[in-house]
């Protein structure tokens, strides 16, 4: 774990330094977590909500943080869980099938003023959105963030082998969509 992370954790557990340490944690990780969440929920406004919820959860559960894992993977894990919880609540509200949120995400993507992709990027995002939820998260973490499988395994609580298989299937599906759709 980097020294800066260790300092942040130590200060977070100190009553007098907690507020300042939390400010440090937010400024250090806000961008990385934002883009991770954004790729899952697609829309900027939703991402903003989920990011705030993520940091609130971190604030409330900092005492539960065990230093066996790195701060970075712990934060990613909370952000991923918060994103999935957010999507599940949307599914319930909009009476969507539990395993299919792609239509909602497509609408979200196309109506978002902060989406500025060209034709091929739109096509790529459409292909990613159509993946099953777990494969979509794995694909984004590996393809865009180039995260190590070991770190991914810690964040997603899955074995490296399962993650490799998941990424392989996802890449194949995306490739097929790119080839067969005009």
């Amino acid at each position: 774990m980097p020294d800066s992370d260790q300092n942040i954790i130590a200060d977070l557990k100190d009553e007098n330094k907690r507020d300042l340490a939390f400010h440090m944690l937010v400024t250090t990780y806000q961008e990385r977590l934002y883009w991770h969440i954004r790729k899952i929920v697609m829309n900027h406004d939703d991402t903003d909500d989920v990011l705030q919820n993520t940091f609130l959860k971190v604030w409330r559960s900092i005492d539960k943080f065990r230093e066996e894992s790195s701060l970075y993977t712990w934060l990613y894990r909370i952000a991923t869980n918060e994103s999935i919880t957010f999507l599940n609540s949307k599914k319930k509200k909009n009476m969507m099938p539990l395993n299919d949120v792609s239509e909602y995400l497509l609408e979200n993507l196309m109506s978002d003023p902060y989406f500025n992709g060209d034709e091929i990027q739109i096509k790529l995002q459409q292909a990613i959105i159509r993946l099953p939820e777990k494969q979509r998260i794995v694909f984004n973490m590996k393809y865009f963030d180039e995260m190590k499988y070991d770190d991914m395994a810690e964040v997603l609580d899955t074995s490296v082998g399962a993650l490799k298989a998941s990424y392989h299937h996802a890449a194949k599906k995306v490739e097929e969509y790119l080839k067969n759709t005009d």
Binding site: R38, K39, D112, Q121, Y143
Partner: peptide, 12 residues
């Protein structure tokens, strides 16, 4: 096909 694409995130 996928490997030829630029890894850009089209969001702002």
């Amino acid at each position: 096909e996928l490997s030829k694409l630029k890894k850009e995130v089209p969001f702002s």
